[in-house]
Amino acid sequence: MTLAYVRLEMVRLLRDPGYLVMSLISPLVMYLVFTNLDLGRQGSDGAAAYSMVGMAGFGAIGAVMGNGVSIAEDKPLGWIRQLRLLPLRPVNVVIGRTLCAMVVTLPPILAVSLAGGLVNGVSLGAGRWAAVVGLLWLGIAPIAVLGIGLGYLLTAQQAQMAGLVCYMGLSLLGGLWVPISTFPGWLTNVAKATPINRYGELSWRITDGHAPTLLGVAVLAGWAALFVAFAVYGYRRSARTA
């Protein structure tokens, strides 16, 4: 039942032109532009790999925020109320939506990674490629839950704007566009506490030949717990209005 629901939601989301724009076209074009600039990394190879992870993450955030907007659009249609009539437990609905959001992040992650390898000559071993793509995919889960929470809590237009703030603001502050090493000292410390920076760090460390840090994983897990609580709160609130 849950898988059938996931398939249905995925088809709906992939038909949305906004998904294509926010998660595929923007990050891909920005990646191809950004790698022609040296924004504070050592050498062009480092810049290409850094920017590849950053823009793949940027696309993934766009995809999960689009998922949040689609949830907000469903509320006035009565779709969430309809789901409550099905033999589908609320937790399964949230899990289904999260899985759906996770699946639709794969195209931008793979597209930008392919551009990195084929266009910009990013060279990693097979194991490291798998780890980079895998961590970019798995690491987006907390942000996907945040998007779901926003979708349940806000109206469609509010979710669109909140998604835009997260999409642009958190990506920038998290160092997905430019390395946080170029930030002023105080802002670097703020950036390190953000979930987006720790999400990107998982894969950046792999491209640099290191394993992710325990602290980085712990910070991301902490944010994940917070976002799950937020999504649960949002879902309960939506029960009163949907």
Partner: peptide, 22 residues
């Protein structure tokens, strides 16, 4: 609209401070 205030005024000021050296 609070989101308008954040997107149109707060975010550009933050970005300006970051990209000014470049």
């Amino acid at each position: 609209d609070v989101f308008a205030l954040v997107i149109l005024l707060v975010m550009p000021l933050i970005v300006m401070s970051l990209v000014k050296p470049m």
